[in-house]
């Protein structure tokens, strides 16, 4: 898996936008030996994502899926106008803690990524980084019509139209904007999917890695991060 070549951007595009600090260049060391420095390759791991098979014993996997479904830790990353709908979820009126939903500040500890509305290209770059840093059973809940077909920003030069071309999506919550009740319904739908064992999109992402990367690199022109952000 790791021997496969990474998807490298066209050379002229890469040289055009990469910060000269990160550009590939030849450096003369203090001892006079010349060597090539490529910070985007040298400082980062270029390992590709792995596919983690579910537990082979169905009973154990069913139990673990139940635990995953009942303990959804949400990454605190609001991308668009929908992030204003996430805050009331934790207030007494809606109280998502009842369903095991808890906000977490770091992608390493979270399982659910709520894409809350439109995504500009600049945000998509950060979303891809955060999504790839989350540990393996990870789920994406796409909020609002902007993530489905672009919504009211369908003709904007700067916002994406279809989220599922860039990261895999488990459940959509339609609306512009969906109310917090709709978001709770989305959480419950996600729970059903996880309990049925149908939410293995992290593995799908690893399987179709090349396709996702090609789509991402098509619009993120100044690609100055590793292909997979460990």
């Amino acid at each position: 898996m790791s021997e496969e070549k990474n998807i490298i951007q066209p050379a002229e595009q890469a040289s055009k936008f990469v910060n000269p600090l990160y550009a590939k260049r030849e450096v003369t060391g203090p001892d006079g030996i010349k060597f090539i420095v490529d910070p985007l390759r040298d400082y980062f791991s270029d390992q590709r994502p792995q596919i983690y098979e579910p537990n082979s014993i169905p009973v154990i996997e069913k139990f673990l899926n139940w635990a995953r479904a009942e303990s959804l830790w949400v990454l605190g990353f609001g991308t668009g106008c929908g992030s204003i709908e996430i805050a009331p979820l934790l207030t007494p009126r809606f109280d998502a803690f009842r369903y095991g939903v808890m906000p977490r500040p770091t992608p390493r500890q979270s399982n659910v990524f709520i894409i809350s509305g439109y995504l500009s290209i600049k945000t998509l770059k950060r979303v891809v980084r955060s999504y790839e840093q989350m540990p393996n059973p990870k789920y994406v809940l796409a909020l609002g019509s902007c993530t489905i077909n672009g919504g009211m920003y369908y003709d904007s030069y700067n916002t994406i139209n279809r989220l599922d071309h860039y990261i895999p999506v488990d459940a959509y919550v339609a609306g512009c904007m969906p109310r917090p009740e709709a978001l709770l319904a989305g959480f419950n739908k996600l729970k059903e999917l996880i309990k049925d064992g149908k939410a293995e999109n992290a593995n799908e992402y690893a399987k179709n890695f090349d396709w996702y990367k090609a789509n991402q690199k098509k619009i993120i022109k100044d690609w100055n991060m590793p292909d997979y952000n460990w």
């Binding site: 055009k16 936008f17 672009g150 904007s156 139209n161 071309h165 022109k221 100044d222």
Partner: peptide, 26 residues
């Protein structure tokens, strides 16, 4: 970040055409 077209707020820039070519319209 990394814009390589004509500046997008100029009115001769066709934002709908650009969006359809770039963002996989549904």
């Amino acid at each position: 970040e990394g814009w390589d077209n004509i500046p997008p707020m100029r009115r001769d820039f066709d934002t709908k055409k650009y969006s359809e070519e770039t963002f996989f319209p549904r």
